[in-house]
Amino acid sequence: PSSALPPYFMKGSIIQLADGELKRVEDLRAEDFLQSADLSGELKIDSSTVERIDSSRTPDAVIIQFSVGEHKTQVCVEVLVEYPFFVFGQGWSSCCPHRTTQLLALSCARLSVGDVCISLTLKSLR
């Protein structure tokens, strides 16, 4: 099952920020994402609030409904319960932090309704 998650969430993975700086995934902060998006020109960080977390028909998956950006656009995503999102003021968070830590060694908080996650949109879409 761990192969279903992307490799870059594994603790110790090296992440390159937009200014070229290298950081480990577990050391990333909200500022790193915001500054990188600023530098990128094309990408914009949105605040996406978790509105609902529902079980899925797919085993080990959940359906998360987000309210995205200033227009509060409703977007649903289906992800594995261990899939980590970056929450403002909290850091990496998943629906099943125990499983995330077990599979990725990444320290995780529990993702809950009301949490504000970092997400991306294209500037040109606005």
Binding site: P6, P7, Y8, F9, S13, I14, I15, Q16, L17, A18, L22, V25, L28, D32, F33, S36, A37, S40, L43, I45, D46, S48, F66, V68, G69, H71, T73, V75, V77, F85, F86, C117, I118, S119, L120, T121, L122, L125
Partner: peptide, 19 residues
């Protein structure tokens, strides 16, 4: 050692118009 771009880690929640 592989190096991954920062934007890989952030979900791309593109607003889609349902109507």
């Amino acid at each position: 050692v592989p190096v991954f771009p920062w934007h890989s880690l952030v979900p791309f929640l593109a607003p889609t118009q349902s109507d």
